[in-house]
Design a binder for these strands. Structure first.
Lengths: 159, 159
DNA sequence: AACACCGCTGTTATAACATATCAATACCCA
DNA sequence: TGGGTATTGATATGTTATAACAGCGGTGTT
């Protein structure tokens, strides 16, 4: 993986290409990227940071796209199910996916200071946990892999 | 690891030895395992299942050990900080630790049907995520590794 | 014994996260 | 054009978690 999220990069281009990939995905799979969903994804992607559902809702409602919690949660459900966003369980927060489409088991590096999030890949079945699961007769359906700590930028200021 | 949690075992003995280990830990480190904390740990350990804070609170208050949320959350904070219990982030629930004392980075197998939980070991630094973290200059402080799926027992009934 | 200190507990209130339900509307397609 | 399905709007409520402050209880000191 690359963890490009912690590095300087052309974020406008990054967002553009991610949004294009998301649209392509939706078109290919017959999913409807409606205005609310589209805007929600843009907001999530606008920084590589985790946003709470109510933070997202605040953005949306400021733009007249709905004012009640279900608006945000429905958009998030759609995006997560479509693989266009991920939930960060350790924060009860959400982040846009930077490589939508590829069916993946994501792993995250989460800065506890600035909430920035970098996405990596795992393969749950190949890990030691996968071995343990096989030994126990457990069938893994979904995996959550999250590491909390300090991103490069915050190590300088905070540590 | 063993995932003894999914197998038949002498659970009374399992609990007794775990409680003894917990007490030894507290004694060694000058921590106070007060009645509420002790009972909370016993409740968490009574099954190898994840319990919500309010479930725990219901048990405690039925025994006259406090009726308000902070009672449960304080006990849980103590147990988690002391390494005697773990939070399951994917469920917002808590589980007793089956090998307290050993400083560990736990990983969990979680049954989505019966909420039973088996604890395994990880070493975040040695995983591919650890490699990614090093490459990105990210400093990992804590890791969350949770796999959801079906335990052996629930595969028979549910699938 | 009197005192101060500190950690734990009791209690109220509220914050933060999430979903159930039902009505209304928009979209697709036969 | 009509009928079904997905989406949105709105109200209410459920669930998880913490802030804040008062009081209690043991410990160590003098």
């Amino acid at each position: 993986m690359s963890a490009i999220e912690f590095r300087d990069h052309d974020h406008a281009a990054c967002m553009r290409s991610t949004m294009q990939a998301a649209e392509a995905q939706c078109a290919a799979r017959g999913l409807r990227l409606t205005p609310v969903r589209r805007r929600a994804l843009e907001i999530l992607l606008s920084e590589h940071r985790a946003l709470g559902a109510y933070d997202l809702l605040a953005h949306l409602s400021a733009e007249g796209l709905g004012a009640q919690p279900p608006v945000a949660y429905r958009a998030l459900d759609f995006l997560v199910k479509a693989g266009l966003a991920h939930k960060i369980e350790a924060l009860n927060a959400y982040v846009g996916c930077v490589h939508p489409g590829e069916d993946h088991a994501p792993a995250f590096l989460i800065c506890r200071n600035c909430r920035s999030v970098a996405e990596a890949e795992t393969s749950p079945t190949k890990s030691r946990l996968g071995d343990a699961a096989r030994a126990a007769g457990f069938r893994i359906e979904r995996s959550v892999v999250e590491a909390e700590g300090l991103c490069p930028a915050c190590q300088e200021t905070d540590a």
